[in-house]
Amino acid sequence: MKNCNFKTAKWCFATRRIDQNLAGGLCHDFSQTKPGDLILGRVKSIGNHRRIQLPEGRPSTLYPGDLVVLPCGARYAPDQFEGFAEIDEQCSDMLAGGGCIGRMVQRNERIKPPTRIQPLGRITSKDGTVLNTRDFALAKPTTTSQIPVICVVGTSMNSGKTTATAALAHGLTKAGWQAAVLKGTGTGAFGDYNAYTDTGASYVADFTDAGMVTTYKEPLHRIVEGIDTLLSEAETRDCNIAVMELADGIFQQETAAILATPSARSRFSKYLFACSDAVAAAGGVAELERNGIRPIALTGMLSCSPMAVNEAQIATGVQVLTKGQLLDPAYANTLAARTLMGRSALAA
């Protein structure tokens, strides 16, 4: 593979910050593989992921024999796979469509086995250095950002967090805010990124811009450093408010750690909580209160049902906002006002 033309490979979305021209060789020693190392692989068999998400924001159908470039990474996805950032040089698993390759340890029973990838090597630069997503991250901030942040958390995957995040970002933009829409944790994928971009927000980024293909199994300090990097970049780009989604549910280990650690959650001014029903709302609000957090509003799938809305508001005392209300600049503006008031109170 000395003369491998890396550009013929399908590079995944999580590699989008990396200049493909830097790829100059392969390292065949997988024993030293670290999360974020770029792996060149050949598709051996098609499983759950039949397509790979490309950096330009479109999916590409995979065929056996295709060359792909995926960063090594872990995966936390209760509706798909759990996997670790480990490479089996005989055959590894494609853990996410936006990129990452690793070892699946368990899967949702409704999901097919993963697409299998034969690793060919770790991609190096011409001088032999293994290319790693960490080396292409935004610069680390030198000062603490002051931008007000509305943090969107939820009960689980598919509770409505991304819909709420995008709707609020659009509402804020309509109200005249220079909004940043950010994803603080999760696994690199273009679905959320594209949904954020479509809102017309002033700046969009996720943890891959901070050098992580996934935040699962990353140490808390590195995740928080990534969040700070994104917020600082948003401020540099003249954003005056940020909406940040934390992936998965509030019991997911990294999200739980962020919310339970005062020094980590101090970045967030206010919280929106997305959930599917009134019981989830009551449980989620109670769980958040254990960390001293009271969301400014509930949203998500719950908000589609007026009866569930009524039950949740009675059970929690927290207002439920629908997608339509988050899209409404007057509602978005009032959330911004309450976020700024919270910020002023903290500063005082």
């Binding site: 007057a330 509602y331 503006n333 009032t334 309450r338």
Partner: peptide, 14 residues
């Protein structure tokens, strides 16, 4: 249809 007084109340100090 839209709770304008509550929304305006949130902005009142400003």
């Amino acid at each position: 249809k839209t709770n304008i007084p509550a929304l305006a109340h949130n902005q009142l100090r400003h």
